[in-house]
């Protein structure tokens, strides 16, 4: 679908086995200038996938290319901004301490840019971070991730536990970040409505496997849910039906190409789908 040189990140068939859990042949690709949402329920493998990308864990098999080459170097790390779900700094420090530390960690650190973010986010200079709210901590993590000319942001659940106003601010920041057309964001979340807005691609992870990795609009506007009585749904004889779920009073079928389906079955109601609906459909038995 895409030329390889347009990819900032390519993941091919990575596997990692743990006692209780395994990543199983995870593959996806993130183009330049795009936002990809990594969606899945808690424990689906989103964080493990991100750890693998960042070289925090070793792989049993598979291949990861970042910035067009395999393996992650210190130079690559200069151009990657990372946010974990929990703030990772020693919270007895204040934001200006962190600025001083990062200035000596990243070669491309931009003190002015960092300062701008601090002001924009209204983060106090001298207060200990542990007294910050969760939203402020997340903003601080983002400020650090975005103040060293990163080309790729890897963000683990950056919006969870935040109020809608802060979430909206952060989502706008994402759109600004990719506006140069060169930088990309991989962001995991179980709040799918956030991703429904800003993500260009959606990758669904479930039990360590990728169920789907697609252009978001293709998902939202071509998938649908057919709803009818149990008999009607079960009598559907179409390759477009991907999954059937029975309720107490009705049944639902996940439809792949709702336009074609409606031509085939004009009398069956087909609802538009949200990423949440899709997640529930795909992840429940």
């Amino acid at each position: 679908m895409f030329m390889e040189e347009n990819m900032i990140l390519q993941v091919e068939n990575i596997c990692k086995h743990y006692q209780q859990f395994a990543l199983n042949n995870v593959s996806f690709a993130l183009p330049k200038g795009a936002i990809m949402g990594l969606i899945g329920e808690n424990g689906a493998g989103k964080s493990t996938t991100m750890k693998a990308l960042l070289g925090m864990i070793s792989l049993d098999s598979g291949k990861i290319s970042i910035f067009g080459h395999e393996g992650i170097t210190a130079q690559d790390r200069e151009a990657i901004g990372v946010v974990f779900d929990e703030l990772a700094f020693n919270q007895t420090m204040n934001v200006s301490d962190i600025g001083k530390v990062m200035k000596n960690v990243y070669r491309n650190w931009e003190p002015e840019q960092y300062q701008q973010y601090l002001e924009k986010f209204k983060l106090p200079q001298k207060k200990q971070i542990k007294d910050f709210s969760r939203g402020m901590k997340m903003k601080l993590s983002l400020a650090v991730a975005m103040s060293h000319h990163a080309k790729l942001l890897i963000l683990d659940e950056p919006t969870s536990g935040l109020d809608p106003v802060v979430r909206a601010e952060i989502l706008d920041l994402f759109l600004e970040f990719i506006a140069d057309g060169e930088s990309s964001i991989l962001v995991s979340s179980h709040i799918t409505s956030d991703l429904e807005r800003v993500a260009d691609y959606i990758t669904f992870v479930h039990q360590g496997k990728v169920l789907m990795s697609k252009n978001k609009d293709d998902i939202l506007y071509s998938y649908g849910i057919a709803k009818a009585d149990r008999e009607t749904i079960h009598s559907l004889n179409s390759s477009l039906v991907m999954k059937i779920k029975d309720g107490k009073y009705d049944s639902e079928a996940l439809i792949r190409d709702k336009e074609s389906f409606s031509k085939q079955y004009p009398n069956v109601l087909v609802d538009a789908i949200s990423l949440d609906d899709l997640m529930v459909m795909l992840c429940t038995d």
Partner: peptide, 18 residues
């Protein structure tokens, strides 16, 4: 202890340092 408590140990490995 601080490293473990604040998870800096986890964060340090993603920084551009070996």
């Amino acid at each position: 202890s601080y490293d473990e408590f604040y998870r800096w140990d986890k964060y340090a490995v993603i920084l551009p340092v070996s």
